Amino acid sequence: MTPDTPHNDLRPGFLALSTALTGFSEHELLGTGQTMIYLQTVCDMARSDCIADMLDAFCACAIGDDKAALDRHLRLCILSHPRHGPLARNLVKLWYTGTWHCLPRDWHESYGGNPADHDHIPSPTSYTEGLLWPAIGANPPGAKPFGYGMWANPPRVFRA
């Protein structure tokens, strides 16, 4: 995707929502290189107007620094909403695992979406850039090795 794509106007809201859903900063999300690919994926699978409506609902109450109020709004108005909830949950899975999961059949029957919606990996780097890996303090198996001879050291375990 190029910077002047049709979905570029959704990017700020998409990043803000993704930050709230994942707990990672915009800087960290942009660092994955997947932002526009994931936005395009969501728009392709669920239609642009569905994602735009979800972003509008999120941005309507995402003003201010009150984290508790934002979390409450996220749970009540986005994750529990019949139209926005499945999209938001898929977005979380997409950021963490690098895989888009097909939206439920009843969601498609109620709200439309792309009849070609299917489970898929949106880009060759989605797996290695998944947020799962930094969240657990590990590197993805088969990619991003720790370095020469690291196999000789015990695994690093991070405790909260």
Rank of each mutant, 00 (worst) to 15 (best):
M1S: 10
T2P: 09
D4E: 13
N8Y: 12
D9Q: 14
D9F: 08
R11N: 13
P12W: 06
F14P: 12
F14I: 08
A16G: 05
T19V: 14
A20Q: 09
A20I: 08
L21D: 02
L21S: 02
T22V: 04
T22I: 07
G23F: 05
S25Q: 11
E26S: 12
E28D: 09
L29V: 04
T32L: 06
T32C: 03
G33V: 02
Q34L: 14
T35L: 00
M36K: 09
L39I: 10
L39H: 05
Q40W: 06
T41Q: 15
C43G: 12
R47F: 09
R47S: 10
S48K: 14
C50A: 15
I51T: 07
A52C: 12
A52Q: 11
D53T: 08
D53E: 08
D53I: 07
L55A: 01
D56Y: 03
A57T: 11
F58T: 07
C59Y: 05
A62Q: 05
I63H: 15
G64L: 01
D65N: 07
D66L: 00
D66A: 01
D66W: 00
K67E: 14
K67V: 15
L70W: 02
D71W: 00
R72A: 06
H73V: 01
H73M: 12
L74S: 14
L74C: 06
R75E: 10
L76S: 12
H84P: 05
P86K: 00
P86I: 11
L87M: 10
L87A: 07
R89L: 08
L91V: 06
L91P: 02
V92E: 11
K93C: 08
L94Y: 01
T99G: 07
W100A: 08
H101D: 03
H101M: 08
C102A: 14
L103Y: 10
L103T: 07
P104E: 01
R105P: 04
D106L: 01
D106S: 14
H108F: 10
H108C: 12
H108P: 04
E109C: 07
G113C: 02
N114Q: 04
N114D: 15
N114T: 11
P115M: 12
D117I: 10
H118G: 06
H118Q: 15
D119L: 15
H120Q: 08
H120T: 01
S123L: 04
P124V: 12
P124H: 14
P124S: 10
T125L: 12
T125W: 13
S126H: 03
Y127G: 12
L131M: 03
P134C: 05
P134F: 06
A135G: 03
I136T: 09
I136F: 15
G137R: 04
A138Y: 05
A138G: 03
N139T: 14
N139Y: 07
N139P: 06
G142F: 10
G142R: 10
A143W: 03
K144C: 08
F146Y: 13
G147P: 09
Y148F: 13
G149Q: 04
M150L: 06
W151D: 15
W151Y: 11
A152I: 02
P154C: 06
P154A: 00
P154Y: 08
F158C: 07
F158Q: 08
R159G: 03
R159M: 07
A160W: 11
